[in-house]
């Protein structure tokens, strides 16, 4: 965590794509700072550029112009391969469709990022993955394949996977978009808990209600930030730097509804 300077700094960022119909500008002249420990929701209509912005923050994509700095890293300067290595240690990604490896069990999916980045010694990986699954109330489902889990369960495995290497930043693209409202609530509660434990979370959503529960709401339209509210409203952070293993509250875990969401 960098004190005295914003954790995420986006400066004059533009992003355009070449399409059959010509150049499409997804983002134009975006400037944005996000402090460590903020819980940020990005909203906007389809095509407004919100997923593009999230991808830039996560190092999934690079800007056509401008700079993206996360912590001490100039993300826009990294190659694809350097980005992968950086992301593995610094960013946890949660997708709308969960995107678990279908041929790996829940616990193996959680261990996969550790395997790629080697952050944890091999002997510790299994224990850590078990703890992470227990934290998302799936300790007893560790040996199941994704196809055997409900949508909510899959998304919780995906969150555990995102936390595997203990990254300070979690990005999520429509994390509840494929879940029913009760399951979405439960997943959201997990996020809230993570922020309490010092993680910075940036997520994209269509759901205004969920967005309003974030500490900061950024609205995009036609590739520009048209509204940015609640920047000061940070979720109180616990004492000191983020815990190595965030522990969501038992109440949050209990609220998760396992029955919801499509498989």
């Amino acid at each position: 965590m960098l004190y005295g300077m914003a954790f995420i700094r986006i400066q004059d960022v533009g992003k355009s794509f070449e399409t059959a119909a010509g150049k499409f500008f997804a983002l134009r002249d975006v400037c944005l700072s996000i402090e460590g420990g903020e819980f940020v929701a990005i909203v906007g209509k389809s095509g407004s550029g919100k997923s593009t912005l999230l991808n830039l923050v996560a190092g999934i994509d690079r800007p056509t112009q401008g700079t993206v700095d996360v912590g001490t890293t100039a993300v826009h300067r990294l190659t694809e391969n350097q980005l992968a290595a950086w992301r593995g240690k610094n960013v946890g990604v949660v997708f709308q469709f969960f995107q678990l490896m279908p041929t790996l069990t829940a616990i193996e999916n959680v261990m996969l990022p550790m395997d790629f980045r080697g952050v944890w010694p091999p002997r510790e990986r299994l224990d850590r993955a078990r703890r992470l699954l227990a934290d998302v109330a799936l300790g007893d489902q560790a040996a199941k394949l994704p196809a055997e889990l409900s949508g909510g369960e899959q998304q919780r495995v995906a969150i555990a996977r995102a936390l595997a290497n203990d990254p300070p930043l979690i990005v999520a693209d429509e994390p509840t978009g494929n879940l029913d409202s009760r399951t979405a609530d439960a997943v959201f509660a997990l996020f809230t808990d993570l922020v309490r434990h010092g993680k910075t979370i940036v997520f994209v959503t269509h759901d205004r209600d969920l967005a309003s529960r974030a500490s900061r709401l950024i609205t995009l339209s036609d590739g520009r930030i048209v509204d940015d509210t609640g920047g000061a409203g940070r979720v109180p952070v616990g004492a000191g730097p983020p815990a190595a293993v965030p522990v969501p509250s038992a109440a949050a875990a209990a609220r998760v509804d396992d029955g919801g969401g499509p498989p």
Partner: peptide, 16 residues
């Protein structure tokens, strides 16, 4: 393809 994308997203490098 999507699995490759996800693996990259969670930190896998191309050579891996």
């Amino acid at each position: 393809t999507w699995q490759i994308g996800v693996m990259k997203a969670i930190g896998a490098q191309r050579q891996q």
